[in-house]
């Protein structure tokens, strides 16, 4: 049984989308990231993605690149991610880790899954691991009861969507645009189309991310997706202080409860 499923049962019962917020562990410091993530949970994030800073983040735009660089310069170590997850989980938050695959491969896939589960983490989002290469992770996630959140993109073919859905659990991460992370003014209309194509193959919750930064955008996405994923906007706010993070989470939490029909958001 997916441990994230209960989160989505609750949000679906409330007829709203879930809010998923991202922050790299170790940014601005290890303790600081745990505090910001906890504030995000308190202010309305149903799930938080704890990022694992990596030296070569090819899917990330400048905001997250710089945050990851700062975390690494500050001495972030992979095992610190478990401490952060533990802090978030101990206050009742639902935490997943988002990570490029090499640090996990290096740590040992089974060992990483074991330590993440022990810390109270619920799953891993894998931006550069495709299902075809994921045998070891599938086995480890089964052993330790973690969810596997793979990505699909607007370019994904029907065949790729079907293959990816088959090995996913918890929710699916639908990239709203072809591109890297970073706040954008408008969410492309590729997102609703992608969600519709994925929905044809599964009832699994679908989260939409890449470029979301405002309550209005959140409301627009909430109209057709099960989760609204916000990354760079939180990272930018975290650089300014915790009050702005709470304000942003509050605005987005309101957005996911509004469910504006697509195209009506200003």
């Amino acid at each position: 049984m997916s441990r994230l499923a209960t989160v989505f049962e609750a949000t679906r019962a409330e007829n709203r989308a879930a809010l998923v917020g991202y922050l790299p562990a170790g940014y601005p410091t290890v303790d600081g990231s745990a505090e910001v993530l906890t504030a995000m949970v308190e202010s309305g994030c149903d799930i938080v993605e704890v990022g694992l800073p990596f030296s070569d983040p090819v899917m990330d735009g400048p905001t997250i690149q710089l945050a990851a660089e700062q975390a690494l310069r500050g001495g972030f170590r992979v095992k610190d991610v478990f401490r952060v997850v533990e802090r978030v989980a101990s206050t009742g938050g639902h935490a997943v880790v988002m990570t490029y695959w090499n640090p996990v491969y290096r740590y040992g896939v089974d060992a990483f899954a074991r330590d993440l589960a022990a810390a109270g983490g619920l799953g891993i989002i894998t931006p550069d691991l495709i299902v075809d290469e994921a045998d070891e992770w599938v086995a480890a996630s089964e052993t330790h009861g973690l969810d596997r959140i793979f990505l699909v993109a607007p370019a994904s073919t029907e065949e790729r969507i079907v293959t990816t859905v088959a090995r996913s659990s918890g929710f699916l991460y639908a990239a709203s645009v072809m591109g890297v992370t970073g706040a954008r003014d408008a969410i492309s209309n590729a997102a609703p189309d992608l969600v519709r194509r994925v929905r044809a193959h599964t009832d699994m919750p679908i989260g939409v991310g890449l470029g979301v930064r405002s309550g209005a955008q959140a409301a627009e996405i909430a109209a057709y997706a099960d989760a609204v994923i916000v990354g760079s906007a939180f990272v930018s706010q975290a650089g300014e202080g915790i009050d702005g993070v709470r304000t942003l989470a509050g605005e987005l939490a309101e957005g996911v409860r509004s469910r504006v029909a697509a195209g009506q958001a200003s």
Partner: peptide, 20 residues
Amino acid sequence: ERGYFGEFGGRFIPEALIPA
């Protein structure tokens, strides 16, 4: 057919680039 020379190679890359 998966692009492996022994245990090396493959595709450890975002799904968005797989179609290309």
